[in-house]
């Protein structure tokens, strides 16, 4: 069967894994610990394809009919 790159699908919003400095900047911006972020499971198809590990923060840029682009951050958890 043909491998499909799901990140290319127009319905899949853009996911990127933050590097350490970006992650720290985010934590400082909201003055939070990792556990206070919304979660995403490690077995989430997009996270799998990005190779996300537990504790990584994924930045998700979604297209929204209301505001154009909305940005979300999620921490990768076991699952």
């Amino acid at each position: 069967m043909k491998e499909i790159d799901i990140t290319k699908n127009e319905l899949v919003p853009k996911h990127t894994i933050l590097n350490d400095s970006e992650k720290e900047e985010l934590m400082n911006r909201y003055k939070i610990a990792l556990r206070q972020l919304p979660r995403i499971k490690m077995n989430d198809s997009v996270v799998e394809s990005l190779g996300g590990k537990i504790g990584d923060v994924v930045k998700i840029v979604r297209k929204s009919p209301v505001v154009g682009e909305s940005v979300y951050y999620r921490v990768v958890i076991r699952g």
Partner: peptide, 9 residues
């Protein structure tokens, strides 16, 4: 815990 980064996006 953060639920939304901006209320109502």
């Amino acid at each position: 815990r953060i639920v939304q980064f901006l209320p109502g996006d």
